[in-house]
Simulated assay, not measured.
Amino acid sequence: MESQRRTVRMAEKLVESKMAGRDASHDAAHAFRVRDLALSLARRRVELAALLHDIGDYKYSKDFVEDTTVVDNFLMEENVEESKRHKILDIIKGMGFKNEVLNRSCRASSPEFGVVQDADRLDAIGAIGIARCFTYGGSTNKILYDPEIPPRQNLSKEKYMNKDEKQTTINHFYEKLFKLKDLMKTEAGRKRAEKRHRFMESFIEEFHKEWDGRA
């Protein structure tokens, strides 16, 4: 038990080190929130996967490619048993929305996967999700809103990941955030997502009213 807690403490330090300097949409605080959400959804062995899930995020890599090398090396250095290490890496590699952008299956590959993915997605919606969305949009110089640029339909994984295509921050709600409620894998995740989803709907409704001068 003590060795497990030591590994968690070292993972926290790794997260703080590797995610330092990122914008607030995908920083260490996000990782810690996802960890806490995952543990509150189900008391399973999900803490390390939740903490480490965004260290190799493709959006912050030099070549725009997801890289789990740092996480894999860390787990080996901490002598995490091989089966658990593979499970953690499998969770991290499969949990991104880009992997479900076309095939919107609500089946989880494992209970642990569902918990960690739901926790990450809960942090992407609601009040925190709205704040993160605009933070990331600002950090990448996205246009706030343009009615002449409609949300993209029937996105492929490649098109979703294309950082060069001109898009708006508001469109991200329609292309991803509003879809997350129906992609939750756990009952607890679905219940929490309902309230956060409604909050986003109210926000976007008010945004459009204010944009059009109707409020």
Rank of each mutant, 00 (worst) to 15 (best):
K181R: 06
K159M: 06
F134H: 11
G189M: 00
L180G: 03
D118I: 03
S109D: 06
D118W: 03
F113N: 04
Q117P: 09
I91H: 14
M161H: 00
G129W: 07
N141R: 11
G114Y: 15
P150T: 04
K159I: 07
K142M: 12
M161A: 05
A124Y: 02
D182C: 02
A124S: 08
R107V: 09
K98D: 15
T168V: 04
N141G: 06
C133V: 04
N154G: 00
D182T: 05
I130V: 09
E165S: 07
K98Q: 15
K93F: 04
P151L: 08
S110M: 08
M95A: 04
H86A: 14
N103V: 07
K185Q: 01
E100L: 15
N162E: 12
N171I: 10
F178A: 08
L144H: 01
E100A: 13
A127V: 15
K191W: 07
L155S: 02
E158A: 08
K176T: 14
G137V: 05
V115C: 09
I128D: 15
R85I: 05
R152F: 02
H172Q: 05
C133S: 08
S139C: 06
G129I: 02
S139F: 07
K185A: 02
E187H: 11
D164C: 01
K157M: 03
K84C: 08
E158V: 03
D120L: 04
I130N: 05
R107L: 08
A188C: 02
S105W: 12
K191E: 15
K87G: 08
R152Q: 01
V115N: 10
C106K: 15
Q167V: 13
E175K: 11
I170M: 09
E175S: 06
I128G: 03
I125G: 05
G137H: 09
V101P: 08
K142G: 00
N171C: 09
Q153T: 10
C133F: 01
F97H: 12
H172L: 03
D118Y: 06
G129M: 10
N99R: 13
S105I: 04
P151I: 01
P151R: 03
A119L: 10
K84S: 04
K98E: 15
E158N: 08
K185H: 03
E81R: 12
A119V: 06
M161P: 01
K142I: 00
G94A: 13
I128V: 11
Q117K: 13
D120S: 03
D123S: 07
K159Y: 02
Y160L: 10
L102E: 15
I149P: 00
M95S: 10
L180H: 09
E81V: 12
D90C: 06
A108C: 06
A127N: 13
E175N: 13
E148A: 09
E81I: 09
Y136V: 00
D118N: 08
L177K: 10
F97C: 11
L144D: 01
A131G: 05
D123L: 02
E187K: 14
I170E: 13
P150C: 00
I88F: 11
D164W: 05
L155R: 07
E112L: 10
T169L: 10
K142E: 11
N171S: 11
N154W: 01
